[in-house]
Design a protein around this nucleic acid. Structure first.
Lengths: 220, 220
DNA sequence: TTTAATTTTTAGATTTGTCTAAATTTTATT
DNA sequence: AATAAAATTTAGACAAATCTAAAAATTAAA
């Protein structure tokens, strides 16, 4: 099945939203896509007609199996291109997302398979997100949210869930990248912020909002 | 200035056509773009409004300096991606064109500059065509048409001007790629065909039509 | 359980790029 | 130079993706 760029963007957004909430509603998708609810309704009809969506008017919606498969194909392309941009073209990780948004719509299965091989079949993209394989299978990554880690334990940063330029800019400021080792020194009850220590740097304080979006795993 | 994919495709086609004929006409552009003359007229108005085109109705048209600069930017992207596909992803040269047609529309100047550096600033694409630099300057390549080469002189294939899948498939059949050394053994007056000898292969005959589209240079 | 607020959908318009069919202009031919 | 042929443009229509404004359905609140 072939999709327009616009259809692909909707499919991808619905996929991401339905990771959090079982069923997605019109307004939240409109917010995510930066468009009007009426435009969303229009597109929902098209996606339903293409049998990608479970949808009844006024009732919310979610991708069916075909829809999820399509979404994973797009996510795969997106993350492989992100990996290429960061690893081969040496882009900063906060720059790759916007460009990959364009590249993910290029439609050649052969291209993506060759790219995958060229990159050495990576399983994680530059933000630490898993890259689906050609069958849409996602590698499971054993990680925990930084805000759930007890004090004094040494952990390695493995992914970042909020990938806005603002968030990534902030982590860059803290000198935190994927693979950075750090320890939580103290948790402040007052606002949920954490004092952390990054190797060879002074201890510093990060807000709860930041901590909630950083994922880590224990060393080895 | 930013262009739509469709505008870029028109700009590119006009550029190629005006290499041959000083001024381009509606029907030939329609044929090149596989569309209707009336659609061409519609687009000409848009491109004229964007000040890329010298155009008066019923009078033919050609790109002005701004239009040529835009065209060279697109051609640069196209040929760099072709180089990437052939050199890094190991695509056959007859497969790269179609995919590069999609990739050439991705719009990040930074991306293309980094790609250029990553590839080692190549000056020729997989079909032997020169790659414009970031200022739109095209390297001059000293080459002659195979049909103008005298017999017994050894030459190296340096580019192919007709890049349809049919043509490239044919050259593949003859075992001719860029860099192939060959000698013209005989020219047939009857139909303009040539007998050629490729190193380590039997002599074979190629039609005038093929010879007209193969460009070569003398060894060294 | 009515009423009010919110969410979602419909109706109708707009933009971009395309088309067909008809009209216009240019070029070629007798 | 008049007429025929070819090339080009206009007029009006259509599909995709979007929008605004109004209507309808659902949910929350009094």
């Amino acid at each position: 099945m072939n999709f327009t760029t616009s259809e692909e963007n909707y499919i991808k957004s619905i996929y991401h939203l339905q990771q959090d909430t079982e069923t997605v509603n019109t307004n939240s998708l409109a917010a995510e896509m930066q468009t009007r609810p009426s435009s969303v309704t229009d597109m929902l009809k098209k996606l339903k007609a293409k049998k990608l969506l479970q949808y009844e008017r006024y009732r919310g919606f979610k991708l069916n199996e075909a829809g999820k498969k399509a979404a994973l194909g797009i996510i795969r392309k997106h993350r492989l291109w992100e990996y290429f941009l960061a690893e081969k073209l040496k882009f900063d990780w906060d720059k790759v997302h916007v460009i990959a948004e364009e590249m993910e719509h290029i439609g050649s299965e052969d291209l993506i398979q060759r790219l995958d091989n060229f990159l050495g079949n990576p399983s994680i993209d530059p933000h630490g997100d898993p890259i689906p394989d050609r069958n849409g299978k996602i590698p499971v990554i054993n990680q925990q949210c930084l805000s759930d880690i007890p004090v004094t334990k040494k952990v390695i940063v493995s992914s970042v869930s909020n990938q806005t330029a603002h968030m990534l800019e902030m982590l860059k400021h803290y000198n935190i990248v994927l693979g950075t080792a750090l320890t939580v020194l103290k948790k402040f009850e007052f606002d949920g912020s954490l004092e952390i220590k990054v190797l060879k740097q002074h201890a510093c304080i990060i807000s709860e909002q930041v901590a909630k979006n950083v994922f880590v795993h224990y060393d080895q």
